[in-house]
Amino acid sequence: MTVGIVSYGAYIPRYRIKIEDIARVWGDDADILKAGLKVNEKSVPDVDEDTATIAVEAARSAVSRAGLDAQRIGAVYTGSESHPYAVKPTSTIVAEAVGATPVLTAADFEFACKAGTAAIQTCMGMVSSGMIDLGLAIGADVAQGAPGDALEYTAAAGGVACVIGNKESELAAIIEDTYSFTTDTPDFWRREGMPYPEHGGRFTGEPGYFKHVLGASKGMMEKLDTKPEDYDYAVFHQPNGKFPMRAAAMLGFTKEQIKPGLVVPRLGNTYSGSCMMGIAATLDQTEPGDRIFATAFGSGAGGDSFSITVTDRIEEIRNNAPTVEELLADPIYADYAMYAKHKGKIRIA
């Protein structure tokens, strides 16, 4: 059965902080950091924004972009590692906000930065089985990084929602297939009650990111008997600007293929929204018939790959909601003090 993306929507807070402003506080060399990370600035949530509000905005854009009746949505799954409640689902808040309640099923997902794509896979299965008409899969985060930690330079805020369905006349993009590669690799973690995650430093690259991104990507292309030149675009999880470029080169993809979706230099790492943000930015620019190869990565660790073909429907819905480029435009820059206040790094006893 054909299954794919009926609609999509993104949300990025307007506030940003430049790498220089973080480096100045900790005495780091901003030029070296920017050259190494290939990130110039990152998004910062407003004081009243969290994963739930970001997920709601992305979901509303996805529903309005295609003019959907939200009552058709039978499943709402929100992937994040920064849900505002330890016990209270984000997904029920989203379902109520978009008018999908009473929804058949709702749950929150967690698998580091690939929780959103895991939600897409789950919606694909439920739609294909006939259990639901439409599924809403969201990847959203207000990413955490301890003060002075390397993560603080990239941990950003944003989210993307995808409506998954199987009526061919409604599909803006067909998901041809998906493939996952997963192992127990503890490269990144946060224990219950701890405010910030910890990481294995250099081990987050290998055997974390590259083993799983390459494993999932190669498995996907072997499954479909495709190769990099069969695709017009490629998107890889974007913890920084260096890793996706290196992964693309290792797999045989070109800089031109990944450039449209490589938003991390101006956005930072939106964790569960990272790969999905790259897909959304790419869909904003595609033409009917274009093919997109995408691989998400989540620490812990695993990779989810997708092979996507864009349909004529993309031209009917694309301009009905803000594009990623529009969301990145006109930022409001914060200094470190404002950033710390917005992120809750300053706590009043």
Rank of each mutant, 00 (worst) to 15 (best):
R60Y: 09
D335I: 06
C123Y: 00
Y15S: 15
V263T: 15
I308L: 03
H199R: 04
R65T: 02
D50H: 07
L251I: 10
D133F: 00
A137I: 10
S305C: 08
W189D: 05
I164T: 00
T282V: 12
A10D: 02
A137F: 10
N40R: 13
M276W: 13
P195N: 10
R60T: 03
I308A: 02
T185G: 05
A140R: 02
G148V: 01
V56W: 01
L283Q: 01
P89K: 11
V142G: 00
M126W: 09
Y231P: 12
G27T: 00
A173F: 04
Q257S: 08
V25H: 07
P89A: 14
D290I: 07
G344T: 00
T182R: 00
G193T: 05
S7P: 08
E326Y: 07
F297Q: 05
V160E: 01
P186Y: 01
P331Y: 08
P288T: 07
K227W: 03
D133V: 00
M220I: 07
P322N: 03
Y233A: 04
M276C: 06
G201A: 11
D141H: 07
K42E: 08
S91N: 02
I308T: 05
K341P: 05
D21S: 14
M131G: 14
A58M: 10
P147A: 06
M220Y: 05
F306E: 00
R318N: 08
V56K: 02
V142L: 10
N319A: 15
A58T: 14
T323H: 15
T309P: 02
I32D: 09
G158Q: 06
Y339V: 00
C162A: 14
P147S: 03
K211Q: 12
A321M: 10
E206F: 15
E20I: 08
Q144R: 13
V3T: 09
E192W: 12
D284A: 09
E49I: 01
T311D: 06
L37E: 06
D28Y: 05
M220F: 07
F181I: 05
T282H: 04
G145A: 14
G4Y: 00
T323E: 09
L37Q: 04
L136Y: 00
P84L: 03
N240V: 01
G303A: 06
K259V: 04
T90N: 11
G36V: 04
Q121W: 09
V213E: 06
V235D: 12
A248Y: 00
R24I: 01
R24Y: 10
D335A: 08
A10S: 13
I174V: 15
K114S: 14
G261C: 08
L267T: 12
L104E: 14
E170N: 07
E170L: 13
A66V: 03
K114P: 03
R246Y: 04
P45S: 11
L214A: 12
D304Y: 02
G36H: 14
M338N: 12
A156C: 09
V44R: 04
L37D: 06
D29M: 14
D48V: 13
F253C: 03
T51C: 15
G302M: 01
V56P: 00
Y339M: 13
F109D: 02
D230S: 10
A155D: 07
G135I: 07
T90F: 10
E49N: 08
V163E: 10
E206T: 15
P207E: 02
E325S: 15
G344C: 11
A150E: 08
E176F: 09
Y333W: 13
T101G: 12
G135V: 10
Y231D: 12
T254H: 08
I164D: 05
D312C: 05
K114G: 03
E170A: 08
A35S: 15
